[in-house]
Design a binder for these strands. Sequence first.
DNA 1: CTATTTTGCACAATCCTTTGTGCAGTGTCA
DNA 2: TGACACTGCACAAAGGATTGTGCAAAATAG
Lengths: 324, 324
Amino acid sequence: MSARKAKPPVTLKAIARQLQVSESTVSRVLSGNGKKYRISAKTEKAVLELARKWRFVPNPLAQGLRLNRTQTIGLIIPDISNPFFARVARQIEVEARQAGFSIILCDSEEDTSLEIKSLELLEARKVDGFLIAPVGETTDHLQEYARRDWPMVIVDRYLPEIKLPYVSSDNFKGTYQAVKYLLERGHRRIACVQGRTASLPNRERVRGYRQALQEYQVAIDESLLVGNDFGLENGYIKTKLLLRQEKKFTAIMALSNLICLGTIRALTEEGMEIPRDISLIGFDDQVYCEYLRTPVTTVAQNEKEIGSIATKLLIEWIQSVNPV
Amino acid sequence: MSARKAKPPVTLKAIARQLQVSESTVSRVLSGNGKKYRISAKTEKAVLELARKWRFVPNPLAQGLRLNRTQTIGLIIPDISNPFFARVARQIEVEARQAGFSIILCDSEEDTSLEIKSLELLEARKVDGFLIAPVGETTDHLQEYARRDWPMVIVDRYLPEIKLPYVSSDNFKGTYQAVKYLLERGHRRIACVQGRTASLPNRERVRGYRQALQEYQVAIDESLLVGNDFGLENGYIKTKLLLRQEKKFTAIMALSNLICLGTIRALTEEGMEIPRDISLIGFDDQVYCEYLRTPVTTVAQNEKEIGSIATKLLIEWIQSVNPV
DNA sequence: CTATTTTGCACAATCCTTTGTGCAGTGTCA
DNA sequence: TGACACTGCACAAAGGATTGTGCAAAATAG
């Protein structure tokens, strides 16, 4: 069938046989331990040359089996088609590749049970560690892996009860500055549509919102702080409800990119124009913002940096546990 | 260090020892070949129960080594942060997972040399097959893999000289209908900013453009057919140049989502409003379109379907080469 | 010229699973 | 009772790389 079966694979054994030496010798030379094991310069040269000529690449399955290390990272993302996560994922892939690691991608589809299955799958596949942006409904499964000392770094969303390294942008500062910007422009009644209330990023963003208002001596009207999900639906529905209540407001702070889109949709449907009738600030940097009907202001998150830092942290951890 | 090292792993051997049977017996039972090898019901039951109790999961490294099959697919994408590819990738992951395959993700960064490196890396990692959206500059490396009978399915971009299965939306029909739509609304001078001219999707899209114009007896002005890249830059620059030349036009057909964004930027900078001053139709479905300052019409590509079909094709191929 | 050290490498076990072969023990039939 | 079949499983090799140990031969010392 496949031509791959036809010609015998280039293995240590093949090289050893050809050169009339043992596999161990070949292995030691190729892993750079030639001198350490007193392989003669002549043998070393021969091995190196033949390996090059035959384009020898060690079989990672065999290596993994033997070394209990696969140079593989499991990446679990709630939705890779979310531009924010896609950009984070890209940087993770680039960074990991440069360090000699590959990425196995799992999309948890914003579903905790799939997140758990992904963890199990990746564990079974012997990944060296996890990068995960948790769905965030429950955390028992993450705690469990943390307890078992798996190298794992949390990205973006976080739940404070877990003791794991965590990388995201400065959520507090983001909303803090955004709301301050609105206040400076005279807004005093600023609504806020938030994401999953239990998540740390959301909590931090809300904290920034409160802090800014406080500094401007604006009493916080809890009826203007609504929402409980990072999705578009939440932004849409909560904005509709906000508009239907008696309390008035002149600006909206949307705590995610999707919420922001939902809010825009709702405002548009209600015939309100941004920023003529109302001001809107979103969260998460996106290419598209500048092309929006209204140039919506957005709090930038640096996905590249998030991805890069998270990956470096994880790889350092992996390598400290199981040195090369 | 790691707690994982502490407790011994659950292996066939461990189960065999506990039950005082041989590893082969355990293996046969667990792979469902109990009867075939005349394992007694009693033994079978005992094995099954202990495996369940101990949550035995076979080591995929050992399996891969033995079976020469890893249940892994290599996915190579020019830019995972491009929403179109991100959505395709998501569906691929979902579909592959359901068939028991995992995805190793490689981002070629729109760079052919990285694409080649990714192929080599994935081959070394013993993936069972490739899903690739090629950069498309050169194709020798792809030809090479095709020649070696690697299961490989091309997604989105394609170069006709390679004989490989190819999945994308109906590019011809997409622009054909879009341009017809413009013609029906009275446009006669329709510019077109195309993507990489060598790629099949682009050729098909251009063919649709020409066909529609022909059917309306509109002579094709080649100076209105510009561009050579799918990126934003190309859309931006070529639109600027179009606006600076003497030939006038009333509509632009942008042959990718990024080109479309670049075009919008250029038009905006030149103070032109869509659709007051000019009409614009883009390519690729995106959530954001409806939120754009101008509701730009877009030719939809069904990423879910593309991802799904490509994955199914590949897995069928893999399984026909190396049946389970 | 013998005793000791050093050189240069081979052997074999190990990681874990799969699978072809083979061998005791029990049962069947003539 | 002896030939034969069948039952139920064990043994061992294979797949590829790594690594501790050990053993000859060569080099050096005395």
